[in-house]
Computed example of a mutant assay.
Amino acid sequence: MDRDEEQTRAPTGDQDEQRLHASSFGAAAVAYAEHRPDYAPAAVRWALDAAPGPRVLDLGAGTGKLTAGAVALGADVVAVEPDAVMLTELRRALPAVRALRGSAESIPMPDASVDAVLAGNALHWFDMALAGPEIARVLAPGGVLAGLWNVLDDREDWVAELARAGGSAVVGPRDTPAAWRAETARAHLPRTGGPARFGAPEQAGFRHGQRRTADSLLATLATRAGVLVMPRQEREATLGRLRDLLLTRPETARGEFTLPMLTCVLRVRRL
């Protein structure tokens, strides 16, 4: 059994939970647009520097955080997003960008129409048994698929303490550098066999940060899928516990601070 078969044969309960988490963001689209960070420009540049041309598809584009970063680098970007509310926020923020309703598993674009497919904090939501052939179909030969994730830099003591206090709902399996490297080294990419082959994956991390206050950091964490699907009382208790921690740490108790992050990139080329 190859990697993709293992992923698609997960227990039904796991698949249901995956779908619940993946579909949770629309309810928080406005907060997502306001509070989620952008992506380190150096990371977006590295994701695209091996692409054979400027045509970029941002797949699972959300409210356009990564779309905006690719546009700023001069790419010709089309955004595709399955959630209508998220898509509305993207179109409001980036009215000049072509933005389409669609999914990774059914991409509304012609064959070989893009030089790169990007996915910002989204690649792990794709059903690669279906999305892999679709991504290969729309990529031109030599095109690049790259997933980008903003992860917390838990090499800082207070960030590590925040991660521990938040638990798995707040800090998931890809949300710190070491966990991201381990998780993405073996997952989230199309299978390498079949008519369209992909080369060896590459990983890279780029320093990033976001200016936050205790309140705005809590607002950011509240847009994470694990928090969005919590029962209300549990969500309030979790965010209250994190607020107490932030108000006792000297790094975060008063005014603005920089949340240390990395933008981590997983990149693979279509052969």
Results as ranks from 00 to 15, higher is better:
residue 1 M to S: 10
residue 2 D to E: 11
residue 3 R to I: 12
residue 3 R to P: 00
residue 10 A to F: 01
residue 15 Q to W: 13
residue 15 Q to T: 11
residue 16 D to F: 10
residue 18 Q to E: 15
residue 19 R to C: 05
residue 19 R to H: 05
residue 20 L to Y: 01
residue 21 H to N: 09
residue 21 H to S: 07
residue 25 F to C: 04
residue 25 F to S: 08
residue 28 A to N: 06
residue 28 A to D: 04
residue 29 A to S: 08
residue 31 A to W: 06
residue 33 A to P: 03
residue 35 H to T: 05
residue 35 H to M: 00
residue 37 P to I: 02
residue 39 Y to V: 13
residue 39 Y to D: 14
residue 39 Y to I: 13
residue 39 Y to F: 15
residue 41 P to M: 04
residue 42 A to T: 01
residue 43 A to R: 02
residue 47 A to C: 07
residue 47 A to P: 06
residue 48 L to E: 03
residue 50 A to T: 06
residue 55 R to E: 01
residue 55 R to K: 00
residue 56 V to Y: 03
residue 57 L to S: 05
residue 62 G to Q: 11
residue 63 T to P: 00
residue 64 G to D: 04
residue 67 T to A: 04
residue 68 A to V: 09
residue 69 G to E: 06
residue 71 V to A: 01
residue 73 L to D: 11
residue 75 A to T: 08
residue 77 V to E: 10
residue 79 A to T: 07
residue 79 A to M: 06
residue 83 D to R: 10
residue 85 V to M: 00
residue 90 L to E: 12
residue 93 A to R: 14
residue 94 L to D: 03
residue 94 L to W: 05
residue 95 P to F: 09
residue 96 A to K: 02
residue 97 V to C: 05
residue 98 R to H: 00
residue 100 L to Y: 10
residue 101 R to D: 13
residue 104 A to I: 10
residue 105 E to Q: 15
residue 105 E to T: 11
residue 109 M to E: 15
residue 110 P to K: 10
residue 110 P to L: 13
residue 112 A to K: 03
residue 115 D to I: 01
residue 117 V to P: 00
residue 117 V to W: 00
residue 117 V to G: 05
residue 118 L to A: 13
residue 121 N to T: 10
residue 121 N to E: 14
residue 124 H to L: 08
residue 126 F to Y: 04
residue 128 M to C: 00
residue 129 A to L: 07
residue 131 A to V: 13
residue 132 G to P: 11
residue 132 G to N: 05
residue 133 P to A: 04
residue 136 A to K: 12
residue 139 L to E: 12
residue 140 A to E: 13
residue 142 G to A: 02
residue 144 V to F: 05
residue 146 A to R: 01
residue 146 A to L: 01
residue 148 L to P: 01
residue 151 V to M: 11
residue 152 L to Y: 13
residue 154 D to P: 03
residue 157 D to C: 00
residue 159 V to L: 09
residue 162 L to A: 11
residue 171 V to K: 02
residue 172 G to S: 14
residue 176 T to M: 05
residue 179 A to N: 08
residue 184 T to Q: 07
residue 189 L to N: 01
residue 193 G to Q: 11
residue 194 G to K: 12
residue 195 P to W: 12
residue 197 R to T: 09
residue 198 F to H: 06
residue 198 F to G: 08
residue 201 P to F: 03
residue 201 P to I: 06
residue 203 Q to E: 05
residue 204 A to G: 02
residue 205 G to L: 15
residue 205 G to Y: 09
residue 205 G to C: 14
residue 206 F to D: 12
residue 206 F to C: 09
residue 206 F to P: 12
residue 211 R to V: 15
residue 213 T to A: 08
residue 214 A to E: 01
residue 215 D to F: 09
residue 217 L to R: 11
residue 219 A to Y: 02
residue 222 A to I: 08
residue 223 T to D: 06
residue 224 R to I: 09
residue 226 G to S: 05
residue 230 M to S: 10
residue 230 M to Q: 15
residue 231 P to I: 03
residue 232 R to W: 01
residue 236 E to K: 00
residue 238 T to M: 02
residue 242 L to D: 04
residue 244 D to S: 12
residue 246 L to M: 14
residue 248 T to H: 03
residue 249 R to N: 10
residue 249 R to I: 13
residue 251 E to Q: 14
residue 253 A to P: 04
residue 254 R to I: 09
residue 258 T to P: 03
residue 259 L to V: 07
residue 263 T to W: 14
residue 265 V to W: 13
residue 265 V to C: 12
residue 266 L to H: 12
residue 267 R to A: 15
residue 271 L to D: 11
